[in-house]
Amino acid sequence: MTKAVLPIDPAALPIVTEENVLIFDLDNTLYPSSCDLFSQVSTLIGQYVSDSLGLPPEEAFRIQKSYFHRYGTTLRGLMLEHKIDPADYLHKVHDIDLSVVAPAPVLSNALMALPCRKVIFTNASRGHAERVMARLGIADHFETIFDIVDADYIPKPEKLPYDRLLSRDGISPKNAIYFEDMAKNLLPAKDMGMTTVWVHSDSDWAHEGRDDPRIDHETDNLPVFLEMLVAKAAR
């Protein structure tokens, strides 16, 4: 078992039963943020903005970040301001090298041992999620994926995607445990009644909201945290 750096009190952890649903964000949650896939995606987004709008790289970068902060994703800004094709965008910006993501047998075994439904909830595309899950070796453990298309391109932490996920997949929030690297994305989930787990990220922008009392648990080692849930469920 890999040693967790952040101390966790087993007595404070929830007991996972068949009634629970584990909801996982994808990027920087199911794999370590040190893989830094976002740098690859960010570069491709900048290239897409530059090519689509006919802008030099410096101006494209400014637009990219402006839309991200104003609309939650650069994609939504491009859709609203320039009517770009979201399918084309998602295909191109997720055409990245996943070799930096190592297979995760400890994570896979922990997921398999937890006796409940498991779903992916991501602001990325279904295709990207499927590729990452295949690389990690965990695809078989998940019932479904809820991606940015399912959310009508409205990103977390807007409340609409959470409502749609729960409604589509018949999830009661009181039975849901939500794992996410972006602390602020946990806050709407807690307001709805979910148990929240912040998975630490190296990215500064993922720390917004980290001190909010609506975050129930935190970990810097997801596989170890899940193994502790397995151990508690087996008692």
Rank of each mutant, 00 (worst) to 15 (best):
T2N: 14
T2G: 10
A4T: 13
L6E: 12
L13S: 05
L13A: 08
I15Q: 13
I23S: 05
I23M: 07
L26D: 01
L26V: 05
T29Y: 03
S33T: 02
L37D: 02
L37A: 00
F38Y: 13
Q40W: 04
Q40H: 11
Q40V: 09
S42G: 12
I45K: 06
S50V: 01
D51K: 14
L53R: 09
P57T: 11
P57I: 12
I63E: 00
S66L: 14
S66Y: 13
T73E: 06
T73H: 08
T74R: 02
T74C: 11
L75K: 00
G77P: 00
L78M: 11
L78K: 00
D85Y: 06
D85M: 08
A87Q: 15
A87D: 15
Y89P: 04
K92W: 07
V93Y: 03
D95Y: 01
S99W: 02
S99T: 07
V100F: 05
V100L: 01
V101R: 08
A102M: 13
A104W: 02
L107M: 09
S108D: 14
A110M: 11
L111H: 04
M112K: 15
C116L: 10
R117M: 11
K118A: 07
E130L: 11
A134P: 01
A139S: 15
A139F: 07
H141L: 02
E143T: 15
T144S: 15
I145V: 14
A151R: 07
Y153W: 07
P157T: 10
P157K: 13
P161V: 05
L166Q: 10
S167L: 14
D169G: 09
P173D: 10
P173Y: 10
K174T: 15
K174E: 15
N175W: 07
I177D: 01
Y178V: 12
F179Y: 07
E180T: 04
D181A: 03
P188G: 07
P188I: 10
A189E: 09
M192E: 09
M192I: 13
G193I: 04
M194V: 07
V197T: 04
S201R: 02
S201M: 03
W205Y: 15
H207V: 10
H207R: 11
D212S: 10
D212R: 05
I215G: 00
H217G: 05
P223K: 02
L226K: 05
E227M: 13
E227N: 14
E227R: 13
M228R: 14
L229V: 08
V230M: 08
A234S: 15
